[in-house]
Write a protein that binds this DNA or RNA. Structure first.
Ligand code: FES
Ligand code: FES
Lengths: 157, 157
DNA sequence: TTTAGTGCGACCATATTGATCGGAGATCAT
DNA sequence: ATGATCTCCGATCAATATGGTCGCACTAAA
């Protein structure tokens, strides 16, 4: 329950990978292409491609076309929050399907609903949690990219 | 995204209703039957029935058979956490489908997975959030049922 | 101009969830 | 004691969301 989708999962992995390449490597300007990521993590290529496209459309990464093309973080890893990534792929965070009701509400039980307010509170808490953690933090645990060990992050390639 | 299922939603409503009847009413021992709840909140009767059955099997409520039967909270509202309710209906909290891997892991990307640890951390945080809020807290906000109007249940200020 | 790459939309397959049925047991009222 | 209610529980069907696949247009480097 409360699972996040595989797509979102893939998005996180991909971003983390791109970030680590971009930050830790000796080749800071290097772009990362879809295939590289797909192979590294065993993600279906086509699916990952679509995920990356969405991320790029949402301004989290930049795409570079043509041969030798690939993706690049649009901004610093510390300025990309987990919430942004997740919401980019799946819609806005909605713990219950009537969280974000527009104008005419459609929830059958809204009238007598006794749990709406507390649920919204919970949702908000979760959101803050996700929005306070950045891509940078996610890498924090792993020996972060001191200017060293270029290969430490993905030995085979 | 991160939506909780309708069933869980129903469970919350039902429990909240039962709790409020049991605590606030002039008839503290009164049992609440499925039909009453279903009608009050416009929940499909059969579905709600099944939800309640599960809750009862998991020891959150007690069932009383026969005519004039119904359900009753198994313990105080302050001793039932949101996490317990949710996990009762949907499985254990698993933000990603490889959170609770038994022995032989099956996650294709586990080998090179770079996001497992941080995700588990997030999951844990969410769990604590849910586990620190009880049914009692959920009702806390609303001016709960002073000793009055048994039927006034859904007045909604 | 060729070629390796992304951009993008439509599409199918499968898993999860929501909802429904039908009968078996229990218990209260008469 | 006997019938009428009501919960219990398993099996089943339908709707929806998700995961995954194709095919083609477009772009830029070599
Ligand atoms: S469930 Fe829709 S308002 Fe409570
Ligand atoms: S996705 Fe399964 S271990 Fe990271």
């Amino acid at each position: 329950m409360l699972k996040i989708s595989k797509k979102a999962d893939y998005a996180l992995m991909a971003l983390q990978h791109i970030a680590s390449v971009q930050f830790g490597d000796v080749t800071p300007g290097r772009v990362v292409n879809t295939k590289e990521i797909a192979e590294e993590y065993n993600i279906p290529l086509e699916l990952l491609a679509k995920v990356l496209q969405v991320l790029s459309k949402n301004g989290l990464i930049e795409s570079h076309n043509g041969p030798k093309g690939g993706y690049l973080l649009a901004r610093s890893a510390r300025q990309i929050t987990i919430a942004q990534i997740l919401e980019s792929i799946e819609g806005p965070l909605a713990i219950t399907d009537c969280s974000h009701e527009k104008d005419g509400d459609y929830c059958m039980q809204r009238e007598h609903c006794n749990i709406r307010t507390p649920l919204l509170k919970i949702q908000d808490s979760i959101y803050q949690l996700l929005n306070n953690m950045t891509l940078g933090d996610m890498m924090g645990g792993t020996p972060l990219i001191t200017i060293q060990s270029p290969s430490a992050q993905g030995v085979e390639r």
